[in-house]
Design a protein around this nucleic acid. Structure first.
Lengths: 107, 107
DNA sequence: TTGACATGCAAGCAGCTCCTTGCCTATGGT
DNA sequence: ACCATAGGCAAGGAGCTGCTTGCATGTCAA
């Protein structure tokens, strides 16, 4: 599936997903169940396993999270690169700025 | 109305609103009709006046746009400060990082 | 004052988002 | 083999989002 930059913005639009990113930033390579437990205990978020799993799918589609299977465990890794690209889109807007605008790589 | 940081993320989640920010970044203090015209001609977006107006409301609620009335004209100004606050939330995550996490200023 | 212009307000609607529910697959331990 | 564990898949629904439609308000020029 080919993805655009817009998916990153949409992925960041949900507070639960941002909390997941916070969690992975603090402790990388967590499994789904670990994330669920820590979201509850540290972020006061009562999200079901399926809900968190779907959020992780969105984050993975946006390229913000990559996964690695190991036996029956699946570890989630935070990839900061998509964030770096859009971090300063409207900030350093000098004459020689790069083009941050949305584009559709597919089609 | 008291707003949280999350509203900024939600405001950025829509491609039309990002195009509006692009437009205001390139040429500040535009009116609603100017923005409509330039969105069509420069960004290939066929948004109605009402649609753009509602997007501007969202951006203003998020603190990304401030307005100034002058007669029958209303000029829109891009405020980059909310962007600066959340730009590097997951980027410079060293031990002495500031807390970027979502919070609810109201209540 | 009359009319054109710039904007505001609100109801309604299609589509999407987030979540739940229920069941399924697969791996590892005993 | 058996069971517990970790995760996957898919349908359904409540609520939100973005847009349209129609009308109202307010400003300026003639």
């Amino acid at each position: 599936m080919v993805l655009g930059v817009g998916d990153v913005y949409k992925a960041l639009a949900d507070p639960t997903r941002r909390a997941i990113l916070d969690e992975l930033a603090e402790r990388d390579e967590q499994t789904l169940f670990e994330l669920c437990a820590r979201l509850i205990s540290k972020h006061d978020l009562a999200s079901s396993r399926q809900a968190v799993s779907q959020h992780l799918d969105v984050l993975e589609d946006a390229g913000l999270v990559t996964t690695r299977r190991e036996g029956r465990y699946k570890f989630h890794h935070l990839d900061r690169r998509p964030l770096q690209r859009l971090a300063g889109r409207w900030l350093q807007l000098s004459e020689d700025r790069e083009d941050h605008r949305d584009q559709c790589p597919g089609r």
